[in-house]
Design a protein around this nucleic acid. Structure first.
Lengths: 136, 136
DNA sequence: CAAGGGATGTAAGTATATCTGACATCTTTA
DNA sequence: TAAAGATGTCAGATATACTTACATCCCTTG
C-alpha cells in the first residue's frame, strides 16, 4: 500500500523516461494518447512519470517488439491489471477519490514518504536513509 | 553494489527535488556551490539528481534545521561517508574511474538495470516488474 | 495493385523549466 | 557597526517539453 504510493509518485520528466526505456517522445506520447499510460502533469502541463509508468512502458516496449499492436497491448495490460475489488463502499471511495486532487495526493505522499523533520522537531534524524526504502 | 548503482542514477530535475525536499532551487544550488552535493548534468547543463543526492539533501535540510552552518554540515557528511578503502589497486581503479565518462556509466547502468529485451530476444519477458527491484 | 489505417518521424511555433550572474535582504557574529 | 553567511529575487539566456500538422513506411484488405 505504502509501496504502491511510492511507485505512483510522479517523478520523471519525459527526457529521463526516454533514456530509461529507449522509447522516443513520440512513442510515449502516442501510447498516452491511446490510453496505455496516464502520466501525471505539472502545473505547466509537462508530463511527469512514476515508476509504475516507466515499468508499464517497458512492458509496452517488450510487447511492441513481439509484434503486438496497440489494441493487443491494451488487452494484455488489462489482463495484468489486478481486478479492482468491488466492495460495498464503492460509492464512498469513489467520492473520496474525487476529493483528492493530484496535487493534494502528492502532498500526502511526500509527507508519508519523507516524514519531514519540520513536523516533529526533536525527533532523532530518521530522515537519512529514508529513501533507501525505495530499494530492497 | 548494484544497489549502489541504482541509487546513483541521475534521474530527477531540480523541480522534482524541490518538491521532494521542500528546499528552494536557490538553496539546492547554493549547497552544490559549496560542494555538499554533486548532482550530474544533462548535455544541456541542467542538473540531474540521484536518489542519493535527494537523500543527502534531506540530511542537509535536517542539519540546517538544527542550526548547523555549511562548514558544520560538510564535516558531518564527511564523517558519515564510508571511508574509501585504500587498496593495492588504487592506481588501477583510479585509472578506470577516469576512463568512464558519466555518459558511458549511465549507459552501463541502464543496461544492467533494465536488461533490455532488444539484447536477447526470445527470452521471456523479465522486464515487467524489473523496476520493482527499486523497492523492497 | 491501390487505398486506407496504424505507428512513428519530423518540423514549426510556443510554452515551461532551468541556468547563471548580479544585487537585495536578513541574521549572526566578530 | 561591519563583515560574512544564507537565502530571496530578478533578468536574460538556454534547454526541455508541448501541441499540431504533415510526411513516411509498412500492413492489410478489397
Amino acid at each position: 500500500m505504502s509501496d504502491d504510493i511510492r511507485r505512483n509518485m510522479a517523478l520523471f520528466p519525459i527526457g529521463i523516461v526516454m533514456k530509461l526505456t529507449d522509447l522516443t517522445a513520440r512513442q510515449i506520447r502516442y501510447y498516452e494518447q491511446n490510453e496505455l499510460i496516464h502520466p501525471a502533469r505539472t502545473e505547466g502541463k509537462q508530463r511527469l512519470f512514476s515508476f509504475n509508468d516507466v515499468d508499464r512502458l517497458l512492458e509496452i516496449k517488450s510487447l511492441i517488439e513481439k509484434g503486438l499492436n496497440i489494441a493487443g497491448i491494451k488487452q494484455v495490460l488489462l489482463l495484468n491489471e489486478p481486478e479492482p475489488v468491488i466492495t460495498e463502499i464503492t460509492e464512498k471511495s469513489e467520492q473520496k477519490r474525487k476529493e483528492l486532487s493530484d496535487k493534494e495526493l502528492h502532498e500526502m505522499l511526500k509527507q508519508q514518504l519523507f516524514n519531514p523533520a519540520a513536523s516533529r522537531l526533536g525527533e532523532p534524524s530518521l530522515i537519512r536513509g529514508e529513501l533507501s526504502r525505495f530499494f530492497h
